[in-house]
Write a protein that binds this DNA or RNA. Structure first.
Length: 825
DNA sequence: CGAGGCGCCCAG
DNA sequence: CATCGCTGGGCGCCTCG
């Protein structure tokens, strides 16, 4: 349909008004008019053009209103802002429109590509719209209301919706996407918790100067400070319409089988708990009550936490001797008691709580006492929005009756059910006082507890009944440096893991290893042991579990490598891990979770030590991360420190010159190690080979292709025995043909086919091993046979055929497994 | 009997 | 639409030398 309108329908501004427009407004007006005119010139109008024209007309009205207000001295705080209002808002559209225009803003009636809005105001928005507006500044209506109240333009970020990221949020849920890990971590609360925690612990180690570590004889006041339902409180700040005290609020990603990471106390009133699935939580609510599911706002959480810790470090009420991080939202603060003064703990707690609320808009609770365990139990008692102080000598039955078993640190669901089982489930122990009574009534109960839940934990529970600490817990206070030092480094991905091929698994292992190695380098550590833990779909579990992309019910399987020489080299480590994957029987499509652990971390020796020796070993230098090598080369030259080049013999030299540089260095390094091993074992190896040679004397020269059952046919993936057998045959073959006329062409052809198969199935490390075996073998024979035809054929074969196959799949092959050479075939 | 591997458990 | 089930450490049992 087309709408025809005559000319002159536009409400033109009076000339007198025109002269009062600012330059910008004038130009805009001219542009508007010009556009309308060009539409008029067209013969027909589309519906869209009609609306555009209508919009232009409305804008002229807006401009008139704006000028009027400007003349009356209304501050034009929204100058330069072009705002589009999406959907239903509170306050309503009309009101926002008027407020905006009066204060100098431009109201966008109609959102087209030609008229870009600078801001979009919305109270709520479906996901589809969110994606559409991902590149806009999407704010709540409060941005307008509050800015007018403040008399100035407030930063839109303060009113940004939680979903409004700088970069558009594109869901990456395919684990083969190179960005999957990044995206997953960005959205994983558990990853954030772990990551924040280790960062905080790292900070403690660096800031330890500002601490005053107590002595055992000191008497202490311990403050356990913790935000109330932190994630939920922070999330609610983005939704001013919600009341954190009365509306049930949870923080989660989804709507059904999504974990609730945090729920406020209004939600807990109905029995909702952290960790529940949303669908279950909804079932707890009576009819008519809705659950407010809010998105995570990790950035804001970090910001609030920083303010929190900053107040703990510096405030007007107390100077703590230790500020020990428990997590992003929780800290244990220790004050060494001075006999000269008796601080008013109640006031200190109250003041701290007020100060933190003033700064963060979130409430904390505080438990305070003279022992760790009591400060923790008091914290539980204080929650929410309160503080509680009770010293350990004042613990009585009334207090214990308010302490749940799960309140004791180290006691979780498994321990509780074990204890209840010991008590024959009758009655289920509701609180710690009941446990105490059971123990008092039955002297043998302690013995059975020790046998069931362990010695240490039993003692810890008994101590906590008296409000006293066990030694293990006190380490945090008395030996903080030791306590907070990192002893291992790992990555666990048990969500979204769905692979089809070993190549995909390899690529993912690369990404995980890269992540770990980066952290390793930040820590200036190397690892001396790698553990690979896999989750494999349990045989009876469905292919797709209830939870979207979850791991479901799984069996776990492990394999570890002790490295001999600690390493921080990406290539070496990733190859090792890929090798380990091949050693456990988990087909890629059954894989549901991957965990890689670097344990037994050791310090990277500082360069100072090397400099004092005026030279460094080639190996040492090679172990440096590649990106720092060039810098070090210059630095070393300046200081006239030499890199000890490894000795290579003539044969090795020519072999090495044929291969690309990166690879050459790796192999060179490898040769050094080989040399060492060889020197000690060379006699034994020679003896073995003579023996083997003798046993083969009766075979024909044509060794491999003389029957239908070539040895290469029998290779089964992950069947190591078989690979070893093949290696041993190859060695014998080389050994037997290195003199005289060399290997039979048909054998070579079969051999090459086999290598291609390995290459195609991404088993490059195996090719590497074979090539090293051959290289080694030739090396051993070079003195005796280097002029023989056979030797030279083999040498050609190695350099022209085998090495290129290695390079074909370079991405899986960065370096070699150094110490895994098997001379004992 | 100590060292170390493995697996469970727990916390945020 | 879903959904983002991490990660470091303690403890106890077992095995090995």
């Amino acid at each position: 349909m087309t709408i025809r309108t005559g000319t002159g329908t536009h409400a033109r501004m009076e000339d007198s008004v025109l002269s009062q427009l600012s330059d910008d407004s004038l130009l805009e007006y001219i542009a508007d008019l010009s556009q309308s005119q060009s539409q008029l010139d067209a013969a027909d109008y589309t519906r869209e053009q009609y609306f555009r024209e209508k919009s232009a007309r409305q804008q002229q009205q807006d401009r008139a209103l704006q000028e009027e207000n400007k003349q009356n001295g209304v501050p034009q705080i929204f100058g330069g802002c072009a705002v589009y209002i999406n959907g239903y808002t509170k306050p309503g559209r009309l009101q926002l429109h008027e407020t905006l225009v009066r204060h100098g803003g431009k109201f966008i009636h109609y959102l087209s590509s030609k008229r870009k809005a600078t801001h979009i105001v919305a109270t709520n928005m479906p996901l589809k719209k969110r994606k559409e507006f991902a590149n806009y500044k999407v704010v709540t209506p409060e941005w307008i209301v509050e800015s007018v109240k403040a008399g100035k333009l407030l930063p839109w970020q303060s009113f940004a919706h939680a979903w409004d990221d700088k970069q558009p949020k594109i869901a990456v849920t395919n684990c083969n996407d190179p960005n999957f890990l990044n995206n997953f971590f960005q959205n994983s609360r558990l990853h954030h918790l772990s990551n924040w925690k280790s960062n905080l612990r790292q900070n403690v180690l660096q800031l330890n100067d500002s601490f005053r570590v107590p002595k055992k004889k000191d008497s202490l006041t311990v403050f356990h400070i913790d935000f109330d339902c932190f994630f939920a409180s922070v999330a609610a700040l983005d939704f001013p319409n919600l009341d954190i005290d009365s509306d049930p609020i949870v923080v989660c990603h989804g709507t059904h089988n999504s974990d609730i990471s945090s729920c406020n106390y209004a939600a807990r009133k109905y029995g909702i708990k952290n960790g529940m699935w949303v669908s279950d939580a909804k079932g707890f609510l009576p009819q008519g009550v809705t659950l407010n599911c809010l998105p995570y706002n990790f950035e804001k959480i970090e910001a609030k936490s920083a303010e929190f810790y900053s107040i703990l470090r510096k405030n007007d009420f107390i100077k703590f001797d230790e500020i020990l991080p428990i997590s992003i939202d929780e800290s244990i603060c220790v004050k060494i008691s001075q006999s000269s003064e008796t601080p008013n703990l109640r006031d200190i707690c109250q003041n701290l709580r007020n100060e933190i609320y003033k700064s963060t808009n979130c409430t904390v609770s505080i438990g305070c006492s003279d022992t760790l365990i009591m400060s923790r139990l008091n914290l539980k008692r204080a929650k929410p929005k309160s503080s509680f102080i009770l010293f350990h000598k004042d613990v009585d039955d009334t207090f214990l009756s308010n302490v749940k078993l799960s309140d004791i640190p180290g006691v979780g669901s498994s321990t509780i059910s074990k204890i209840n089982a010991l008590n024959n489930q009758e009655p289920i122990l509701e609180n710690v006082l009941q446990l105490k009574k059971v123990i008092n009534a039955n002297k043998s109960f302690i013995g059975s507890m020790t046998a069931t839940v362990g010695n240490k934990l039993t003692k810890k529970i008994l101590l906590s009944l008296d409000g006293k600490d066990d030694d293990e817990s006190l380490k945090m206070i008395y030996e903080p440096i030791n306590f907070f030092e990192r002893k291992s480094l790992s990555i666990d991905i048990n969500w979204g893991i769905r692979f089809n091929s070993i190549h995909e698994v390899d690529a993912f292992i690369d990404i995980c290893t890269k992540y770990l190695v980066e952290k390793l380098n930040e820590l200036k550590k190397k690892t001396s042991q790698i553990n690979l833990k896999l989750l494999k779909r349990a045989p009876n579990a469905p292919i797709e579990p209830e939870k979207y992309l979850g791991c479901g019910k799984c069996d776990s399987m492990n394999r570890n490598s002790k490295l001999g020489i600690p390493s921080n080299e990406f290539g070496f480590l990733t190859t090792e891990i890929k090798h380990n994957y091949r050693c456990v029987s988990c087909p890629p499509n059954e894989l549901r979770g991957i965990s890689i652990q670097f344990i037994k971390l050791v310090d990277v020796p500082s360069t100072k030590d090397d400099i004092s020796k005026r030279f460094i070993n080639f190996e040492t230098f090679q172990n440096l991360p590649n990106d720092v090598k060039p810098g070090f080369v210059n630095e070393l030259k300046k200081r006239k420190i030499q890199i000890k080049e490894p000795k290579v013999n003539k044969y090795q030299e020519s072999f090495l010159n044929e291969i690309p540089t990166q690879l050459r260095n790796e192999i060179k390094k490898d040769l050094i190690i080989n040399e060492k091993i060889k020197n000690s074992e060379i006699d034994r190896i020679y003896a073995k080979q003579v023996q083997r040679q003798n046993s083969l004397m009766n075979s024909k020269n044509h060794l491999l292709g003389n029957s239908n059952e070539s040895i290469f046919e029998s290779i089964k993936f992950q069947n190591e025995t078989s690979f070893k057998k093949i290696c041993s045959k190859i060695i014998a073959w080389v050994d037997f043909t290195v003199k005289d006329n060399g290997p039979h062409p048909k054998d070579l052809e079969l051999f090459e086919n086999y290598l291609d198969k390995l290459s195609d199935s991404n088993r490059v490390p195996l090719i590497l091993r074979i090539s090293k075996l051959i290289s080694n073998e030739l090396n051993l024979k070079s003195l005796k046979y280097s002029n023989e035809n056979g030797f030279q054929i083999w040498e050609q074969q190695l350099i022209k055929t085998i090495i290129p196959k290695l390079m074909k799949n370079k991405h899986t092959f960065q370096t070699v497994r150094k110490l895994d050479l098997e001379f004992d075939l």
